[in-house]
Protein backbone atom coordinates (compact mmCIF):
# COMPACT_ATOMS: atom_id res chain seq x y z
CA UNK A 1 0.00 0.00 0.00
CA UNK A 2 1.08 3.57 -0.55
CA UNK A 3 1.23 6.05 2.30
CA UNK A 4 0.97 5.90 6.02
CA UNK A 5 -2.28 5.65 7.98
CA UNK A 6 -2.96 8.85 9.92
CA UNK A 7 -3.47 6.84 13.08
CA UNK A 8 0.13 5.64 13.02
CA UNK A 9 1.39 9.20 12.97
CA UNK A 10 -0.90 10.02 15.84
CA UNK A 11 0.44 7.04 17.72
CA UNK A 12 3.99 8.28 17.16
CA UNK A 13 3.16 11.72 18.46
CA UNK A 14 1.25 10.21 21.36
CA UNK A 15 4.25 8.14 22.35
CA UNK A 16 6.47 11.19 22.14
CA UNK A 17 4.14 13.22 24.36
CA UNK A 18 3.97 10.37 26.86
CA UNK A 19 7.74 10.17 26.94
CA UNK A 20 7.90 13.92 27.39
CA UNK A 21 5.47 13.79 30.30
CA UNK A 22 7.42 10.99 31.87
CA UNK A 23 10.65 12.90 31.46
CA UNK A 24 9.18 16.10 32.87
CA UNK A 25 7.62 14.43 35.88
CA UNK A 26 9.92 11.61 36.74
CA UNK A 27 13.40 13.03 36.28
CA UNK A 28 14.62 14.96 39.26
CA UNK A 29 16.52 17.56 37.36
CA UNK A 30 15.31 20.95 36.26
CA UNK A 31 17.05 20.72 32.90
CA UNK A 32 15.44 17.37 32.22
CA UNK A 33 12.05 18.89 32.99
CA UNK A 34 12.64 21.47 30.30
CA UNK A 35 13.82 18.77 27.91
CA UNK A 36 10.63 16.84 28.62
CA UNK A 37 8.61 19.87 27.68
CA UNK A 38 10.55 20.10 24.44
CA UNK A 39 9.78 16.47 23.68
CA UNK A 40 6.09 17.07 24.26
CA UNK A 41 6.13 20.05 21.96
CA UNK A 42 7.90 17.99 19.35
CA UNK A 43 5.27 15.29 19.52
CA UNK A 44 2.53 17.86 19.10
CA UNK A 45 4.37 19.37 16.16
CA UNK A 46 4.49 16.05 14.36
CA UNK A 47 0.74 15.61 14.87
CA UNK A 48 0.09 19.08 13.48
CA UNK A 49 2.24 18.52 10.45
CA UNK A 50 0.49 15.22 9.75
CA UNK A 51 -2.88 16.88 10.14
CA UNK A 52 -1.87 19.57 7.68
CA UNK A 53 -1.11 16.87 5.19
CA UNK A 54 -4.20 14.87 6.01
CA UNK A 55 -6.63 17.76 5.45
CA UNK A 56 -4.45 19.63 2.96
CA UNK A 57 -4.57 22.75 5.11
CA UNK A 58 -1.62 24.98 5.80
CA UNK A 59 -2.84 25.92 9.29
CA UNK A 60 -1.16 22.85 10.69
CA UNK A 61 2.21 23.87 9.37
CA UNK A 62 1.70 27.43 10.58
CA UNK A 63 1.02 25.96 13.99
CA UNK A 64 4.31 24.11 13.91
CA UNK A 65 6.07 27.34 13.05
CA UNK A 66 4.61 29.07 16.06
CA UNK A 67 5.35 26.11 18.27
CA UNK A 68 9.00 26.35 17.35
CA UNK A 69 9.04 30.08 18.03
CA UNK A 70 7.35 29.67 21.37
CA UNK A 71 9.62 26.81 22.31
CA UNK A 72 12.58 29.07 21.66
CA UNK A 73 11.13 31.76 23.89
CA UNK A 74 10.23 29.27 26.58
CA UNK A 75 13.65 27.66 26.56
CA UNK A 76 15.46 30.97 26.79
CA UNK A 77 13.41 32.10 29.79
CA UNK A 78 13.44 28.63 31.35
CA UNK A 79 17.17 28.25 31.09
CA UNK A 80 17.69 31.75 32.46
CA UNK A 81 15.54 30.76 35.43
CA UNK A 82 17.48 27.56 35.91
CA UNK A 83 20.76 29.45 35.89
CA UNK A 84 19.36 31.92 38.35
CA UNK A 85 18.10 29.18 40.64
CA UNK A 86 21.40 27.35 40.42
CA UNK A 87 23.21 30.46 41.47
CA UNK A 88 20.92 30.90 44.40
CA UNK A 89 20.84 27.36 45.72
CA UNK A 90 23.65 25.46 44.04
CA UNK A 91 21.31 22.66 43.09
CA UNK A 92 19.06 21.62 40.24
CA UNK A 93 16.92 19.26 42.28
CA UNK A 94 13.30 20.35 41.98
CA UNK A 95 12.58 18.86 45.42
CA UNK A 96 14.67 21.62 46.92
CA UNK A 97 12.34 24.26 45.63
CA UNK A 98 9.51 23.70 48.05
CA UNK A 99 9.36 26.95 49.95
CA UNK A 100 5.68 27.26 49.11
CA UNK A 101 4.80 24.02 50.84
Amino acid sequence: MAGIPFGHVLALSGILVALGVACATARRNLIMILLGVEIMLNGASIAFAAAALRWQQLEGQAFVLFIIAIAAAEVSVGLALIVHLYHRTGSLDPEKFNMLK
Partner: peptide, 8 residues
Protein backbone atom coordinates in the same frame (compact mmCIF):
# COMPACT_ATOMS: atom_id res chain seq x y z
CA UNK B 1 3.82 17.97 48.62
CA UNK B 2 5.57 21.15 47.65
CA UNK B 3 7.19 19.29 44.80
CA UNK B 4 7.12 21.08 41.47
CA UNK B 5 7.13 17.87 39.57
CA UNK B 6 4.39 16.33 41.57
CA UNK B 7 2.19 19.23 40.63
CA UNK B 8 3.23 18.81 37.08
Amino acid sequence: TGSVQFRL
